[in-house]
Design a protein around this nucleic acid. Sequence first.
RNA 1: GUGGGUGUAGCUCAGUUGGUUAGAGCACCAGGUUGUGGCCCUGGGGGUCGUGGGUUCGAGUCCCAUCUCCCACCCCA
Length: 423
Amino acid sequence: MLTSRPRGTEDILPEEVGRWYLLENTAREVSRLYGYREIRTPIFEHTELFNRGVGDTSDIVEKEMYTFIDRGGRSLTLRPEGTAPVVRAFVEHSLEARGLPVKLFYLGPMFRYGRPQAGRLRQFHQFGVEAFGSRDPALDAEVIALAMDFYARLGLKDLELHLNSVGCPDCRPAHREKLKAYLRPRLDDLCPTCQGRFERNPLRIFDCKSPACREIVRGAPTVAASLCPDCAGHFDRVQEYLKALGIDFILDEHLVRGLDYYTRTAFEVMVKGIGAQSSIGGGGRYDGLVAALGGKQVPGIGFGLGLERVLLALETQGRELPPEGGVDVLVVTAGTGVDLAAFRLLAGLRAAGIRADKDYLERSLKGQMKYANRYPARMAVILGEEELARGRVSVRRLDTGSQEEVPLAGVVDYCRKMKESGC
RNA sequence: GUGGGUGUAGCUCAGUUGGUUAGAGCACCAGGUUGUGGCCCUGGGGGUCGUGGGUUCGAGUCCCAUCUCCCACCCCA
């Protein structure tokens, strides 16, 4: 092969595109149902946006970004996630001036450099929402409910919603110190990466999967225990709202999201059976991010979910996904001197909203019928030399094999009726 | 970035201790006599054996390098 697609990317082929329509349509539908409007931001941004927005200590920024210098000498980066760009657009266009809250959703490709594996690509697609301008815990619950609704509409089952609060700038430092005090005497027993995290971002040690770290972390002071009264109250209210909607969740004090901007509510949705990467979505509150990116003090909350992983989960759960392709009518010719009439009929069918096609490889009548069968087409309209001279054509149903001769002038209507009656 | 596995027609795979023109099934195309699909029969097209080196009289088979894909770690969606 002279050239192939770049590592960790995928072509979505025609037979797979139907399931993408389903995902995208469901995402748009459910978003609008909840009052969210679509925003489309560039695929690349100034690198600085992600350095400041996602966080210098995050793995995404440290080693997973597609960063390049353009011909004007600017450092640009293919977006690795959706929140920072949306916040940037929010600030840049002063969207708060339109009246708060501002509720937005996005859909599109993201890029992260890493070794591909099950459920992990270098270019992948995310659906996400961001809501700006309210600290109301009901909004936290709404965002979570929207995500869960999206999964439910697609028919996904056996999901686990993990929920935590990571506190705010008021209570986090205190917890951080308590945690460090607890960890310090045990520092030597932590894995090498976590020893590095100890100073920079000790919360992340909760996330570590190494058995040694897990064991140490088990007895560590939890965030929940050191939340300030405001954060604790907020967290309680979020839980009440979720319960009111009948949404089950698992309190998970070890849940610490990898992006640095989260405050208070953090959540993640897990599903089994799609490989080692079991997270199919997550998000949280980021009350300081808009200000950190140069905007006003506007709170925010959102989620992002990976469409490829959703697809993987749907497949392992045996959910039937819609096929794509096929045509209502294949226009078939027999004999000579009928090509122009056939071509006109094809245009007429299409103008009437009937999906139609014809053979372009000069196949024999038999070959055209085989083509119709394989296409697949529901009907074949056959223009034969003799009938056409009498102004008539034949319409054959491919499923039953029944065939009827109808006037050429009425064949478009005939096909439309057949289609409407479910042929 | 680390580790393990993998790579032969469009797809799924055979290919003996290195030995002539690399095979099968499916798919595709054409036929099976007058203008009709699905089944069956016959025939046909299609492969730089991932790529680049090397060993050898001779390499799909052995060696080295490299790339891809798969899986796991890391991290996350």
